[in-house]
Amino acid sequence: MGTEKTKHFVYLALFSAMAIVLSLIESIYIGPIFFMVRIGLANIVALVTVKILGVKEMIIVNTMRVVISTLMRGMIFSSTFWISLGGVVLSSIVLILLDRMNSSLMFTSVMMSIAHSVGQVIVVCFFYMQARVAAILPYLLLGSIPMGILTGITAQLVLARIRPLRKRI
């Protein structure tokens, strides 16, 4: 029982660390791929976490990712933090709902990517009192579909490798 709990915490720490590193790499080195569309590498970890550990752990990983990555960039509680949080909250809600509905991983990934963009735009609209920003949503939604498929495929590949490994340890 004690060993199981330790294993669980180790996995949680590993997933959190992976999400933070991927989030930092994406924001510092990769940036937007096209116009404002980003890959959403950290979404891969969120998808893997929900399938391997569960919903509660996914929420912990996502919260850690937003808080620690913005803290490391010196952006904690800045506009970037709240915008990031807006995206993560909405995408986490969508992930939980679609996971309960037993949707496919690929569809969940795309919808998560879309929800992330929508969440960020909603916060930007409120933050800057600029409803016109919503005009960017169609671009982001179109961009989110291929990016969501990309992260979905990656999450599938990662899950295929992690699941048997987890049984052995």
């Binding site: 949707s103 496919s104 690929m106 569809f107 795309v110 879309i114 949503l137 169609p138 671009y139 939604l141 179109l142 579909i145």
Partner: peptide
Amino acid sequence: MKKKEIVILAVIAVLSL
């Protein structure tokens, strides 16, 4: 991906366009 899911994504893409 299920057929229903593909339809939903296609609708989102069409609406965005």
